[in-house]
């Protein structure tokens, strides 16, 4: 028996209208999107720029109000929920954004940034909050003195880990990660990916992992959905999608990924130029 999904998205749609009033042009940014995320699972959402993957992530949390569909989290429809109740649900669903440079307040020390995130969600005495901030810093691999650092005193990967700590501190079950490593160099990207994986194993977290980078998505996801022009064209277990893609667009994406070794690149080029008999 498959476990009960943590999140069930059904027929989610969101259109944007042309900027001028009376503009007949309607852009279906998210078009009839459905998927589930299981507890402890990473669900990857891949596609090229403008395909609607970020809008999907935001619409789930109603950071952008969707037009129709349902988003059920632990059996409750987030789209029907009064705003006030939604606020407390956000304890359980957090977001991590792409840009570790702009998503942290540059004038606040790291400890204060984390404390503020906690204060929004819980009424806790100061001492308890501070304790929790220290615990979370430790959990994402920082020494104690990082409490007093400013974001600009840290590397991109360190800032992104603080972004993850800020999401974690309120104790979520699901984290929506929107291109969390795209701005990072590879050696630093790997720090963040490894950490997300370890936290998942340890805490049973679920992730919606949104990215344009197929290799990264493949590495971290249990299941994947491929999006094109607002629609999910294919979804399934990661290994199946990569070894046996069904949709032509998925194949096109996979074929475009640069080879991991020059020899493989040459083989592929020869294969493409030799006519099939």
């Amino acid at each position: 028996m498959t476990p009960q999904p943590l999140l069930e998205v059904r027929n989610l749609s969101k259109s944007f209208h042309g900027r001028r009033s009376g503009d007949a042009k309607v852009m279906k940014a998210v078009d009839d999107v459905s998927f589930d995320i299981l507890p402890g699972e990473t669900f990857g959402l891949v596609g090229e720029s403008g395909c609607g993957k970020s809008t999907t992530g935001r619409a789930l949390l109603r950071l952008i109000e969707p037009d129709s569909g349902s988003v059920s989290f632990q059996g409750q429809d987030l789209l029907k929920m009064p705003r006030k109740q939604l606020h407390s649900t956000r304890r359980q669903i957090q977001m991590v954004f792409q840009d570790p440079y702009s998503s942290l307040n540059p004038h606040r020390r790291v400890g204060v940034i984390l404390d503020e995130a906690l204060k929004i969600q819980y009424r806790l005495p100061r001492k308890q909050r501070t304790e929790r901030v220290h615990r979370i810093l430790d959990r994402v691999g920082f020494a104690e003195d990082y409490y007093y650092r400013f974001p600009h005193e840290m590397s991109g990967g360190q800032r992104q880990r603080i972004g993850v700590a800020r999401a974690l501190i309120v104790g979520p079950q699901l984290i929506i990660c929107d291109e969390p490593v795209s701005a990072l160099d590879v050696s630093i990207q790997s720090q963040v990916l490894n950490m997300l994986h370890d936290l998942q194993v340890e805490l049973g977290l679920s992730y919606l992992f949104i990215s344009h980078d197929l290799s990264v998505v493949r590495h971290i996801s249990h299941r994947i959905a491929v999006m094109q022009k607002g629609r999910i064209v294919e979804q399934g277990p990661t290994d199946e999608i990569f070894s046996n893609p069904q949709h032509p667009y998925t194949r096109q994406l996979l074929d475009a990924i640069p080879a991991s070794h020059p020899r493989l690149a040459r083989e592929r080029r020869t294969a493409l130029t030799t006519p099939v008999s």
Partner: peptide
């Protein structure tokens, strides 16, 4: 070596953690 081992490869072993180059 560290750089090459840090990249998640499209045909790599997904069960292995990626290499990390410590520090900055």
């Amino acid at each position: 070596r560290g750089l090459l081992a840090s990249i998640p490869e499209i045909d790599g072993d997904r069960s292995q953690p990626l290499n990390v180059i410590a520090g900055r």
